[in-house]
Amino acid sequence: MWKSVLLLSSVIALSACNHHPTTYKTAGESGSAAAVTAQGFTGEQLRLIGRFDTSTQGKAQFTWPGSAVEFRFSGTSASIALGSTGDVRFQVDVDGAVQDLWVKNGEATYTLASGLTKGEHTVRLTRLTESFALVTSLLGDPIVDGTLLPAPAAAPRRLLVIGDSITAGYGVEGADQSCHYEAHTSNQQLTYAALAANELNADLHAIAWSGIGAWRSYGEKTPVNPSILVRYQRTLADDANSRWDASQYQPDAILITIGTNDYWEGSVSDDYRAGMKTLIGMVQADYANKPVYLILSPMLGGVQRESQKTILGSLVSRNVKVIDLGKIEPTDGLGCDWHPNKITNQRMGKALVQQLTTDLKW
C-alpha cells in the first residue's frame, strides 16, 4: 500500500506538448535573446508573483512552480526573452485564453501572443513545472509592437502554500496510477491550492517540492536530502546560498500540506512532530498573527491518517488549525503514481474555498 503514499523526486527529461489550443497565435520560440539581454530585465512595468531572485543585474531568476510574471500592453503582439537550465513547461494566459509554452534549455526569445486585435491586453506567464534543479530566468522586459502599460493591479488577497508533490501538481493530468513523473502530466495550476486561490481572487506563492517532508523525504530511512525546513527559506529551491526575504510578501493565510512523505513506510517517529512544530514556528516568525492551516494528506488513509490527525492536532493553537479537505476516493480515479488527479483536487479546492471564506470573511 505504501506504493501509494508518494512520489519519486527524480528529474525526468521533459517533452513538449500542448493541451489547451486557443484562437490566437502564441507560445512559440521566436529567435535569439541577444538583442533583449543587451538591455536586460528591469521589471518596472511587470507584476511578479512568487519568489524571484533579482540580485544579478538585468536578470530575474525563479524556480518554484506557480511563479508568474504578468503585464499589460497596447498592441497586437508580445514576446519575452527567457533563459533556462532545462526544458520547463509554462502556461500563457492572454486575456483569459490559455495555452502551453515549453521553454527550452538555453536562451531564446519566445512569442507569447501575436495576431491580436489592436488594443489593450493582459498577459500572464506561469511556471507549471517543479523546481528540481531547473532555474528559469527573465532576461529582459517584454517586447511589444505597441506600448508596455503600467503593471496590472495586485490581487486583493494573498495566500502562501507549503507542500510536497500534491501541492506541486505531480501527475494531476495523468490517466491513472500507472504513469510516472513527466512534465506534461504535472501542473501546479490544477492543484487544490491554485484552484482555490483563483476562485478567491488571491495571489498564491507555492513552495512545493516532490518527495519532501518535515522530517525525511520519500525513500529515506533517515533524513538525507534537505527537508522543507531548509527549502522553505530559499528563493531558489535548490540553491543553498539563496535566502528569501519574507517581508517581500505578506500572506493573509498560510497553508501547510506536509507529511505524506514522512509516512512513506507507514509510520513516523517523533521527528515528524518536531519538524512540523519547527516549521510552524518559522512561519509564525515570518508572518506574525496570520492564520496557519495544517492540511491532512489526501494520500493517507486508515491508521496513518488518524496518526497524522493526532500529531497535527497536538500542534493546534490560537492561530493554528487542522483542516481536512478530504482524501482520494475510489470514484475519483488517480493521477500518476497514485497521486490526486483533477477530480480530487477540484473537490479539495472547493472545500478550501469554503473554509477560508468562512474563517476570513472572504
Results as ranks from 00 to 15, higher is better:
Ser210Ala: 15
Ser210Asp: 01
Gly211Arg: 06
Ile212Ser: 06
Gly213Arg: 03
Gly213Val: 08
Gly213Leu: 02
Ala214Phe: 00
Ala214Thr: 00
Ala214Trp: 01
Trp215Asn: 10
Trp215Glu: 07
Tyr218Asn: 11
Tyr218Asp: 05
Gly219Glu: 04
Gly219Pro: 11
Glu220Asp: 08
Glu220Asn: 10
Thr222Trp: 06
Thr222Leu: 12
Val224Cys: 04
Val224Pro: 02
Asn225His: 13
Ser227Lys: 03
Leu229Asn: 12
Leu229Asp: 03
Leu229Trp: 00
Leu229Lys: 03
Val230Trp: 00
Val230Ala: 07
Arg231His: 09
Gln233Phe: 00
Gln233Val: 00
Arg234Gln: 10
Arg234His: 12
Arg234Ala: 05
Thr235Ser: 05
Ala237Val: 13
Ala237Leu: 15
Ala237Met: 15
Asp238Cys: 13
Asp239Glu: 15
Asp239Gly: 06
Asp239Val: 14
Ala240Lys: 09
Asn241Trp: 02
Asn241Arg: 06
Ser242Glu: 10
Ser242Leu: 05
Arg243Asn: 02
Arg243His: 07
Arg243Phe: 01
Trp244Ile: 04
Trp244His: 08
Ser247Ala: 15
Ser247Asn: 09
Ser247Arg: 14
Gln248Lys: 15
Tyr249Lys: 03
Tyr249His: 07
Gln250Ala: 07
Asp252His: 13
Ala253Asp: 13
Ile254Trp: 01
Leu255Val: 04
Thr260Trp: 08
Asn261His: 07
Asn261Val: 04
Asn261Lys: 01
Asp262Val: 03
Asp262Phe: 02
Asp262Cys: 05
Tyr263Leu: 07
Tyr263Glu: 10
Tyr263Asn: 02
Glu265Trp: 03
Glu265His: 10
Gly266Lys: 13
Gly266Gln: 08
Gly266Cys: 09
Gly266Thr: 09
Ser267His: 09
Ser267Met: 08
Val268Lys: 09
Val268Ser: 04
Val268Asp: 10
Ser269Tyr: 04
Ser269Arg: 04
Ser269Ala: 09
Asp270Cys: 02
Asp271Gln: 14
Gly275Trp: 02
Gly275Pro: 03
Met276Leu: 12
Lys277Ile: 01
Lys277Pro: 03
Thr278Phe: 01
Ile280His: 07
Gly281Trp: 08
Gly281Lys: 10
Met282Val: 01
Met282Ser: 03
Val283Leu: 02
Ala285Phe: 06
Ala285Cys: 04
Asp286Thr: 07
Tyr287Thr: 06
Ala288Lys: 14
Ala288Pro: 11
Asn289Arg: 08
Tyr293Arg: 08
Leu294Arg: 06
Leu294Asn: 11
Leu296Asn: 09
Ser297His: 09
Pro298Asn: 09
Met299Gly: 05
Gly301Thr: 15
Gly302Pro: 14
Gly302Asp: 14
Val303His: 14
Gln304Pro: 07
Gln304Val: 13
Arg305Asp: 12
Glu306His: 12
Ser307Pro: 03
Gln308Trp: 08
Gln308Ser: 06
Ile311Val: 15
Leu312Pro: 00
Leu312Val: 06
Leu315Arg: 11
Leu315Ser: 11
Leu315Met: 11
Leu315Asn: 11
Val316His: 09
Val316Pro: 10
Ser317Trp: 05
Ser317Leu: 10
Arg318Pro: 00
Arg318Asp: 15
Val320Ala: 05
Lys321Gln: 15
Ile323Leu: 13
Ile323Cys: 11
Ile323Gly: 13
Ile323Met: 13
Asp324Ser: 11
Leu325His: 15
Leu325Trp: 12
Leu325Pro: 12
Gly326Trp: 14
Gly326Lys: 10
